[in-house]
Design a protein around this nucleic acid. Structure first.
Lengths: 264, 264
DNA sequence: TGCTTGAGCTCGCGA
DNA sequence: TCGCGAGGTCAAGCA
């Protein structure tokens, strides 16, 4: 930890912010503030106690006491400025985060600061996550039977004028099958699949099957799908994940180096 | 601030966590940890220094040194547990956040804790934001000229079998106009507008104009749109916002009460 | 750099 | 509670 200031005055706080805001450090500030944003939209947040986090890639977040998402933020900041100003006879520490493209600005006015810390966080490890849509693609390619017995994959990511088909295959009767994979299917998914099937029917001049593969489904979307002569196959997320883990196991021991962590 | 602990041992940390995790407090923890998640997907995050935030509505976030988004999280937690365990001969503080629906768990193993704070954040103020899609609707209704001179709004949210039309209007030649408003238009927006126009042409047995109104547009989508005989009108977000502010001004003085902030 | 697409999306609204 | 759509979406991958 570089700094830990409890109830710092604005002079001391600006000093620290001036030094660390533009650089590769994580800053946490707890305090009473108001926040204004203007850019793609415009927002105003009246006084309240919040946690402001400036990250090492310049991103800034204003977190309220609730919710996953911050109340205000800026994912990429081009320039920071810190000033102490008198607004309506009250001294305020004003932090401004500007971004050029799109042109946006977040202004945070602190009335008081409870806590200000500066950390250098070392985190070299990547998040390994399984269960993405692409993992379902791979699981199907690995074992097409999870969709249907006797299915053979012809091509993944087949291009059509309407976009890319997730999986293009043939069933056991040698009929072409267009497979659309979605974690969270909706009406647009159905329409998209419909368009692919139409395109392929044009390309191959014949009847083509369309299958939506997803880990979950609602009755309404299922009806909508079947009204269009399309099919649905449910895939268990567990199958996808374990299938992937089998692959992961075979590649084990390739890249497990530990990172170093300073205690500064 | 309720607590501020620098480099607490696990016993002291568990004590504080046990007391405050389940209650309405904001907890910040900086430390070296690994994180595992299993639920809708599965993820693994190796050791690294991170900031963990437990919010007052039970949400928990694991923020790395970069990015807007947390590396791991749980928006709603049903039960927390804290344990000190020996894993491979090393003492670890293990924090588990479980959720029932969907069935998910985030497990955070701390190897060391730099800083642990407990705050009670008071924030009663709502975020006031302008520039939503609905604000564009209102701006058009307020002044249809921002779309086109001589335009008259017939109905907002007109229902058709294909869904709700944002704005239904007539142009200066008395021809019907279907207006679709989108902040972030894409291909689906075009298809949607197309469907509305088709529906209305059927209902009124005549040629109908379709206009996509948006604050931004790409060339490809514009081509796609014009290929279908549909039109695009760019609306300036500033016009929408200032128009809204005029309304805001007229309602001023209704609800500006200041919140109280304790200094505990 | 811009565009497209997915996300453990989240969140709020409405049925 | 579930379904649906918007988001200042963000962020990754690719052209």
């Amino acid at each position: 930890m570089k700094h830990l200031l409890e109830n710092p005055d604005f002079e001391k706080a600006s000093e620290v912010l001036d030094e660390y805001l533009k650089r590769d450090f994580t800053i946490q500030m707890n305090g009473l503030c108001t926040v204004n944003y203007q850019g793609r939209a415009k927002s105003k947040l009246d006084r309240g106690e919040r946690l402001v986090i400036k990250k090492q890639d310049s991103a800034i977040l204003v977190h309220g006491p609730e919710n996953y998402q911050p109340k205000n933020w800026q994912p990429e900041v081009d320039s920071y400025s810190v000033k102490v100003e008198y607004i309506e006879d009250e001294e305020m520490l004003v932090l401004e985060a500007r971004r050029n493209n799109p042109d946006e600005v977040v202004e945070i006015r602190f009335e008081s600061i409870d806590l200000l810390t500066v950390h250098k966080l070392v985190d070299k490890s990547d998040l390994k996550i399984r269960g993405h849509e692409v993992d379902i693609h791979e699981a199907i390619e690995d074992d097409p039977d999870i969709v249907e017995e006797g299915l053979n994959v012809v091509k993944r990511e087949k291009e059509t004028p309407a976009g890319f088909i997730d999986v293009f295959a043939r069933d056991e009767d040698d009929q072409y099958v267009v497979i659309e994979v979605k974690r969270n299917p909706d009406y647009n998914t159905v329409l998209q699949l419909q368009r692919y099937v139409d395109e392929i029917e044009e390309e191959f001049s014949g009847e083509i099957r369309g299958i939506l593969v997803a880990p979950k489904m609602t009755q309404k979307i299922l009806d909508y799908l079947e009204d269009r002569g399309l099919e649905f196959v449910e895939v268990e997320m567990e199958d996808v994940i374990s299938s992937y883990e089998a692959i992961d196991q075979s590649q084990k021991g390739l890249s497990d180096f530990g990172a170093d962590y300073s205690t500064e």
